[in-house]
Simulated assay, not measured.
Amino acid sequence: MSTLGGYFPGQIIGPAFDVEFYLSKTEAGASETPVEEDFWLESVEWMESQGAEVITSSLIYKPFDLPHNQYSYKDMNGKTTVIVRAAELAAKLGVVMVNSMGNESQTNPPSIVSPPDGENVIAVGAVDSAGRIAYFSSNGPTSDGRIKPDVVAMGVDVYAAASYSFTYDTAGYSYVSGTSFSGPLTAGVCALILSVHPELTPAQVLEALKMTANKKDSPGNVYGWGLINAYEAALYHGMIISNQPEITEAGDNRIISISVLSKNSIVTESVKMFYSMNGGEFTEQQMFLAERSGESNSGRYTATVPFDVRTENVKFYFKASDDKESRTAPYMAPARFFYFDQETKKLVVF
């Protein structure tokens, strides 16, 4: 989990370090039996009912302990196994489904397992720091001829939190390997994409990953569409505005900073903050490009206001435009807006 959402500056910062988690255990001890697919299905059903937007798993099923019936390669068609049918249904309900590709190595016939065989399951293989496929990473295609994995991510010598005892009273960090780490890293990127583009469907999130990966022009059954690129994937569907403004003190004033990034040219005079005090109408405040990033007027924009926004009677949002679209932060503002929660002492979105 630390690879996905850990946050310990100087040690580890996951791509989705500020998310909320639901955790579920579906493995039945040391055995490998079909009932575990049922447990996994129930877990996904529960998480979807709680509003989970991304579900990631490193569990795979193909062989079971004897005397149970076994899945074979012909069953790896995205339609047969219990677990893949559950995953496909969750994706249709709007959940981004991510699964590790498996550690069955590169084989012929292909070593693909389930649920990575799902058409709407983002199957993630593993590469090392040089971008080379890990020897253990499973390969496709599916039995009905679709390319798998979809993408790859770092899965060799990944820095992660670790417990050094069965009592969990000692902990630290270590280097670990497996698609069990490339999968969560990719799930974290999916959460990152949704944090700036919450309107996207699971299919659009997958498209963003594929079309910004490094082998998108020649996908295959070893690397899929290639190594993911979190920054490019976040920008694939258009301009983004940071969803957590920074607030700094400047005497009696407050400096509000946001990042506005786009592949297209940002109209600098369009970047504005809107605030309301004591339930009144929103007031417009021009923001200025304080720190440029790239050539499209992307960068850090600031506004100075003569009051503390961290009071219970202030709500605010941001708006910006490039030469193709306009966006707000939070998404769908002013129906939604930022305010300071007096109990948690954090900026939240209403």
Rank of each mutant, 00 (worst) to 15 (best):
F181Y: 13
L194F: 02
S270Y: 02
L41I: 06
A234E: 04
V54D: 08
G220Y: 01
V260Y: 02
S129P: 04
P141E: 05
T248K: 13
T167D: 15
T201K: 15
G220C: 05
A134R: 00
E88K: 07
V260K: 05
G140H: 00
Y61M: 09
L185A: 03
A30V: 05
V309Q: 03
T107Q: 12
S177I: 02
L261C: 05
A16N: 06
E232G: 05
H197D: 03
E312H: 14
V271S: 01
V305Y: 07
E312C: 06
F318T: 02
T248F: 10
M332G: 05
V271C: 01
T167A: 10
T302G: 05
D38G: 13
L59S: 11
E269W: 03
P9I: 01
P67Y: 05
L194V: 03
F181Q: 02
P219K: 01
D323G: 14
S49L: 10
Y61I: 01
I83P: 08
S137H: 00
L194M: 08
S105F: 00
D117R: 02
Y73G: 09
T186K: 02
A333I: 05
N229M: 07
A162F: 11
T26R: 09
E37P: 10
S57P: 09
D117S: 06
I266A: 02
T328L: 10
A234N: 04
V158Y: 07
G251Q: 04
S165H: 08
E36C: 07
R300D: 09
S174K: 12
N108Y: 01
A290D: 15
T283L: 15
P115A: 10
Y22W: 14
V54R: 09
E284Q: 14
L89I: 12
P109D: 04
P115K: 04
F318E: 01
T142R: 07
L206I: 09
P219F: 02
K345R: 14
F288A: 12
I147M: 11
S259T: 13
S218K: 12
K79Q: 15
K210D: 07
R310N: 13
E32W: 04
G172E: 10
M97R: 04
V44S: 02
D38H: 12
T3V: 15
V271F: 00
F288V: 11
T212G: 09
Y7C: 04
S182V: 01
V84R: 05
E104H: 00
S182G: 04
T107W: 03
I256G: 10
A161I: 02
W46R: 15
V271D: 01
F282R: 07
V152H: 06
S138E: 00
R327F: 09
P141R: 04
S165V: 05
L185K: 01
M1K: 11
V113R: 14
